[in-house]
Write a protein that binds this DNA or RNA. Structure first.
Lengths: 204, 204
DNA sequence: CGGCCGGCATGACAAATGTCAGCGGGCGGT
DNA sequence: ACCGCCCGCTGACATTTGTCATGCCGGCCG
């Protein structure tokens, strides 16, 4: 029999991480060699242990799973990345795939299936949860231009136009134009529902 | 030795629930007798198995942990409820306690600690995570009147004043007044940041 | 080269929003 | 009985928005 698959687990929820580690350790061809609770910690652990597969939670303090994946891709090309997420938004999947992530699955999965998918990913294949994939396809591509998305993001926390303009180094009028066109493209009634829609589709 | 503690586990994330069940089963005085993925399912399972302790995730499809806890309290007074949450907001804790929940902990906890807390709760004692408790205390009570909170909630998804007025059966002017006073009380710049603030503090 | 598109801006106007003052009614304390 | 507080409403006003037309510049593609 071949060597076991060496795993890095990163999730900020201690309970889940520990439980996951325990469950995956039951599979005798999987070996958890490192755990991390934050993005930077995950990177450090990966450097130290050079795992075969990194299982990363999408939402972690410090740096999210996709950012970690990007760094990992550059530093440890041999390490495959599997992203695991609670509430998967379409855009995240796209970003993740672009970052070279090999697998993307929701947390509503049994441990046995996860173990299988880890093996799949380790073998160099990809695996994307069918439901998340369907969502991503139906959501389609973002109709927003880079600027529109940027401005929309700055508008996300309810800041007035003046503040957005300052933070984006734009004229207030321009900001309103971008906001307006973004709202139109998204079919929203105002900037705030637009922000919500864009968030739901993972476009911000 | 006494009988084992009979547990109900409810969490919509299969992975976590399964892992948790496995870990808690390692403790020989704990026995997982039922699992559920949604609020209603949790209630049904509780009726069928009459567990000693119900471990409920706060955010579940159908009905959230607190609502389930309320029903449980009425139907199965002998069943203690322990709420477990990812990102705990202060107001939830207060609502949970009011619903007769005996324990409230974040997911950033080791399985061993969780097992201890389950025993504590089963013994009839309360346990609230110190950090969450501190947050709740520092957040204090909501300064909003019932109407202000109601209107703010209706404003949450970015609806225009006219729509809020209709849905609340109020005059548009009144809605604006409530919104304005809520914004002032919360020290926000506009209704949207007010909504965000109120959400963070668990006041909506 | 000549469109075309996106980025960036202005100006102007309509609509929505935030703010303030004030009025009346009800309800619970002192 | 009186006071204070919350509810609910109106009206008026300043400010912030959303929307539209229009213009200039720079890059990219046919």
């Amino acid at each position: 029999m071949s060597d076991p698959v060496r795993l890095l687990l990163a999730d900020d929820e201690h309970l889940i991480r520990g439980a996951l580690a325990a469950l995956l350790s039951l599979e005798d061809d999987l070996l958890v060699v490192a755990e991390a609770a934050t993005g930077p910690e995950a990177l450090a652990m990966a450097r130290a242990h050079a795992p075969d597969v990194a299982v990363l939670d999408l939402q972690m303090p410090g740096a999210d799973g996709v950012r970690v994946a990007t760094s990992l891709r550059a530093e440890l090309p041999g390490c495959q990345v599997l992203i695991i997420t609670g509430h998967g938004r379409p855009g995240h999947l796209k970003r993740a795939l672009a970052a070279g992530v090999r697998g993307f699955v929701p947390k509503t999965l049994s441990a046995r299936r996860l173990a299988e998918i880890i093996r799949t990913v380790h073998a160099g294949n990809r695996y994307v949860d069918p439901e998340l994939a369907a969502d991503a396809i139906s959501a389609g591509d973002s109709p927003l231009t880079a600027r529109e998305a940027e401005v929309l993001e700055l508008a996300a926390d309810g800041a007035p136009v003046a503040e957005i303009a300052e933070r984006a180094a734009l004229s207030p009028g321009t900001v309103r134009n971008y906001l307006s066109s973004a709202v139109t493209k998204l079919g929203a009634e105002n900037r705030h529902t637009a922000v919500r829609l864009a968030r739901e589709r993972g476009w911000v």
